[in-house]
Nucleic acid binder design. Structure first.
Lengths: 221, 221
DNA sequence: GCTGAGACTAAGCGTATGCTTAGTTTTCTC
DNA sequence: GAGAAAACTAAGCATACGCTTAGTCTCAGC
């Protein structure tokens, strides 16, 4: 039995070059100097190897530093992941909340919120997917703030749908179900989207916005 | 910096009791004796801790065996995961393909295929989610068979949609996009569904089937 | 009951892990 | 330029990891 064990370790996932660029640009806007290099390296390592599969040595190598240097800037591996997950969720939830808050009627909120959220998940597909998948293993107190952000988007979506129904512009039989469905659509983009897809993230966002309007039975043209 | 490292390891994810039962029943139907115990233990460990986070000791403990006993039945940890992923994908793809193959017209194929696939992903949410998430880290040759099964469902869905358009019963502007959308809806159920949800997997399957018929603009009542 | 095969274990191996330490290098301020 | 603080490294620690080995136990067949 043991003699047929394959000597090859699982190969690291090959990331799309554009996905790497997106991640580098993302952290360039939010961190500088060595911290930035570590955040980029860690994000890439987590994306390619998973949280537990990514050793601090792998992270450090991608940051072109020694493993010990990582601890100058982040107190632990899990704290590093927490930082990435929190920042990622702030951006992700902001991608939905902020555009929706720029308009006042429910239909526009829904359209622009969904478009923006879908675009974000397509553009940041590798980043979003990684955090999404790895967050399931982190339910301890340290990550309570991240989980809270997620619940905030659900609540926001529910309020938009409720307002639309109250104003008679949405025809929804089951708001809770519609909320789940609309968010599910947007979130799953991170799983399947690749930059080589025929649609740009922006175009995809419009598609999902149109779909959302259709699903809620929006009465506006 | 290092002095504020939290001494607590990430807590193992708490699985829904019903999710545990589902997994136990699943393997009861496909394995017996010690192999079954190992498959159950490993599936639970992977679900709670992730692939890399689940040590062979954790797997063995859940199977109530020693770590060495696992190697009598499975040649390596990765082979154990491969076995679980392959079996899971055979069942998952079967959940779509087999019901759809029982009927001949595209509308019925779509309805029954989606209903069945959605029901499967809800019922087996923990199992599906775990495999889905961990499969992204396994792209080496060993897992080619698993990846092939996934592509088979996509192809099948595309053929159903094409047949519906050819026969004039579906009104779809972009078949490729519709294919992605319909499968995305079903697959993402595994991410969000919990057994404590108000809808049973079966009821959810019908909802998704209705949604699919609506989305393709099916002309049959 | 005996024997051999298969299943199983305790112990351990070689290696990897997250993290620390002591020393070195770099940067910043005066 | 000097000194202090910050950033960084090589080396190493304590522990965990996937897996093997040698011995023990259990089961099935005769």
């Amino acid at each position: 039995m043991s003699s047929d064990a394959t000597p090859t370790a699982p190969a690291a996932l090959e990331l799309e070059p554009q996905a790497v660029e997106v991640i580098e640009r993302y952290w360039a806007e939010r961190a500088s100097g060595p911290s930035r290099k570590i955040l980029i390296g860690a994000t890439l390592a987590f994306a390619e190897l998973g949280y537990h599969g990514a050793s601090t040595r792998a992270i450090a190598a991608r940051a072109e530093m020694s493993p010990a240097a990582v601890y100058i800037h982040f107190s632990s591996k899990v704290e590093l992941f927490h930082h990435i997950a929190l920042e990622g969720h702030k951006t992700s939830t902001g991608a939905f909340n902020e555009p929706a808050d720029l308009v006042s009627d429910p239909a526009s909120k829904l359209r622009i919120g969904v478009a923006s959220f879908a675009t974000f998940n397509a553009e940041m597909n590798t980043f979003s997917r990684t955090i999404e998948y790895e967050m399931r293993l982190h339910h301890d107190r340290r990550f309570a703030d991240v989980w809270r952000l997620r619940r905030g988007v659900e609540e926001h979506m529910r309020r938009i749908l409720q307002a639309g129904v109250d104003e008679g512009v949405f025809r929804i039989a089951d708001i809770e179900w519609m909320k789940i469905l609309l968010l599910s659509n947007c979130i799953d983009i991170a799983r399947w989207y690749r930059h080589e897809s025929p649609h740009t993230p922006l175009a995809l966002g419009f598609r999902y916005a149109d779909l959302a309007m259709s699903l809620v039975g929006a009465t506006t043209p």
